[in-house]
Amino acid sequence: MIKLLNPELYEEDDRNAVRLIGAACPTCSGVFFPMQTYGCERCGADLRPRRFAAAGTVTAQARVHLHRAANPPTPFTVVALELDDGPVIRALLTSDSPPCQIGDRLVGELVDITEPDSEPRRDLRFTRAVAQ
């Protein structure tokens, strides 16, 4: 089994569904991603972990042509999406995803990635959902 690149950010459940590891504030009811233990950005209270489905709606997208680092190789697409569970996150589109635009539905999937001098890992990417 190939290990996850960022197991503190996402996980795969028994039915292979990807879930994001976010946070909820018991004091102000805010929901956030990712989970962190420093304190709620809105009110300062201690946060509790909450799992979010890796599915949401595109609120912005940008195709990147020039990037200082070698990883990820250009071109690639960054999306902002509002998760069905509330938080707005930014993520990468899979390299084989159809182009997306604002309002499109996206779902998360774990893809194999290989970086130089490191063992293969799986990382979270999003792809445009196919209408059922």
């Binding site: 960022n6 996402y10 990712p34 940008a62 990147v64 200082r68 960054v78 930014r90």
Partner: peptide, 18 residues
């Protein structure tokens, strides 16, 4: 100490492109 999904891929130009 807080990691995120795609910070390594989002330069200021990309932030404003969004």
């Amino acid at each position: 100490g807080i990691r995120n999904l795609a910070d390594f891929a989002i330069s200021p130009a990309t932030h404003y492109a969004l």
